[in-house]
Nucleic acid binder design. Structure first.
Lengths: 102, 102
DNA sequence: CAAATAGTTTGATTTTTATCGAACTTAATG
DNA sequence: CATTAAGTTCGATAAAAATCAAACTATTTG
């Protein structure tokens, strides 16, 4: 079973790193889709994106590496969710910004 | 006399564009320095950065293009400030996030 | 006016990032 | 057990971004 490595604490994540992670339309779409489920987890391919699965996998990596999402495996699926509480603590206002329609 | 073009309204600026602009440490340093003056303007070279003046000029361009800063010329200097009001309207919480020590 | 100051522009280079296809792994399922 | 489903990893490519030196422009100042 695959398992992912996540930053334990968001304290050491620099702001620029999360900005960089959120500077791609696909990744913002992912985060928004996850936020829209109100806590439910989503598998990678449950989010409609016009990219290959390799690229999709890459974008999830980027989001995971900076602590924006948490991913766990279940069977052949990997389910992700936004690390809402921790993000709100570390970067208050960020998620609200992302969730806004803009 | 040089003059700059600024986006008139921030309405059309996508979130990802400002995220991208703020995903560089130099640029975040610039914005923070400007915010720290509480409304006063700063010339490009009044902000300590370990980069050439060409690169510096480039970073100001990027910030200006997405509507984060406003620049006007006075003599040989170009004075910049953060478009606080407009940013707070368009992206509430963003500047607070940037200003935070992190 | 010559020199200094402040910044821009250009052209080149390097680094980073996004992207994909193909081969692979792991788990569920007929 | 063969197949399908869901992702990952690799290697390659292409696009975007950061960086600089050098030459340039415009303005102030001695």
């Amino acid at each position: 079973m695959k398992s992912y490595s996540h930053p334990a604490s968001l304290e050491d994540i620099p702001l620029v790193a999360v900005m960089q992670a959120l500077s791609d339309p696909c990744r913002v779409a992912i985060v928004r889709a996850l936020l829209a489920t109100e806590g439910r987890e989503l598998a990678c391919n449950e989010i409609p994106l016009h990219i290959s699965k390799a690229t999709r996998s890459h974008h999830f990596d980027v989001l995971r590496d900076v602590g924006i999402i948490f991913t766990r495996c279940e069977g052949t699926k990997c389910l992700s969710s936004v690390r809402v509480k921790e993000l709100n603590k570390r970067f208050p206002g960020l998620l609200k910004l992302v969730a806004a329609d803009s």
